[in-house]
Design a binder for these strands. Structure first.
Length: 299
DNA sequence: ATGGTTTTTACTGCGTC
DNA sequence: GACGCGGTAAAAACCAT
């Protein structure tokens, strides 16, 4: 379509959604709109957040100072090709080193900028609070300081930072959901996340399935009674060691299904599976165990 | 790399509306 | 006939070694 203003690749700028376009080559996000409408803060569920968010920072392209990338020739010649006197040669050498310093500093900053831009973009799309967004930015900066980016993509680390921040802030967003708004795939995010959290020594508390309940329940339109019952199911089942090794989303989904059976507010396996992003098979397995746990507990 | 565990995929049969 | 439900076997994904 258009030529990218950043890397100059022709025809590489493609629409991402209604309000912004991005370059295929360098990932630069071109905003159509100079005003940042920001995300809709009333997004209470992931689906809401995705449909309502207006993603993209008010990037002002005019501020990218391209003048700094001027190249200074290594030859000690003037414009006519004549050799420079030694006095001027020294001067030129000094200029060259300074110019080089400015250029590398600038490129590093630009890379950080685009990374943080990306963090913001994904955070908006996921509808996470501002504090978590900043946490992700902090994690990314720390990763940068510890030199963890080498050998990994900027995109991957940015995605991992977002996911990690959600984890530490107990904002229930699964790896799948992060992957859905990221440019890199799930596996890469998982790998990078493990790597970053290990290197940075992030304390990673296992995800409590209860965290997913409010979101799933509201998406299914369940009564608070059933939601509370599901929480009770999770508690009882967890107390019997049924959680270890199992996926938290599947566990939560099954608890909702189980609670539906118990309260009479029935939900189909298929529906719960859809909102939780798991299969009905998993729900059956977990639910069977949970029912046994509840039965044994009550009787 | 390997093996053990969990999850998914794909397919089955059964009962009900 | 479509749908919900339960089960199974094999593949895939995951994790620790």
């Amino acid at each position: 379509m258009d030529e990218c203003p950043e890397c100059g690749a022709a025809g590489s700028v493609v629409p991402v959604d209604g309000t912004e376009r991005a370059c295929d080559e360098c990932g630069l996000v071109v905003s159509e709109d100079a005003i940042d409408h920001g995300p809709e803060w009333r997004a209470h569920s992931f689906e809401d957040g995705r449909s309502k968010s207006r993603v993209g920072a008010p990037e002002n392209l005019a501020m990218h100072d391209k003048g700094l990338t001027t190249h200074i020739d290594w030859r000690d010649r003037d414009a006519y090709g004549n050799a420079l006197p030694s006095r001027k040669r020294r001067r030129m050498r000094r200029l060259r080193t300074w110019q080089e310093r400015a250029r590398t500093k600038d490129s590093r900053e630009r890379s950080l900028r685009s990374a943080l831009n990306e963090v913001n973009r994904m955070s908006s799309a996921l509808g996470v609070p501002q504090s978590t967004r900043e946490g992700a930015a902090i994690i990314y900066r720390r990763a940068l300081e510890e030199d963890l980016i080498r050998g990994h993509t900027v995109e991957g680390v940015a995605s991992a930072a977002v996911y990690a921040s959600c984890r530490t802030d107990a904002i229930p967003r699964s790896l799948e959901e992060v992957a859905a708004v990221s440019r890199v795939d799930r596996t890469e995010i998982a790998r990078t996340y493990r790597y970053v959290s290990r290197e940075l020594g992030l304390e990673l508390a296992p995800v409590d399935p209860v965290q997913y309940l409010p979101r799933f329940a509201s998406e299914l339109g369940l009564s608070p009674a059933t939601e509370a019952k599901a929480a009770a199911v999770i508690e009882a089942a967890t107390a019997q060691g049924l959680l270890s090794g199992r996926s938290p989303t599947g566990f939560a989904a099954a608890a909702i299904y189980t609670a539906g059976q118990l309260t009479g507010e029935r939900v189909s396996q298929r529906e719960v599976a859809a909102v939780a992003g798991v299969t009905t098979v998993t729900i059956r397995h977990r639910s069977k165990e949970q029912l046994a746990a509840m039965g044994g507990d009550a009787a």
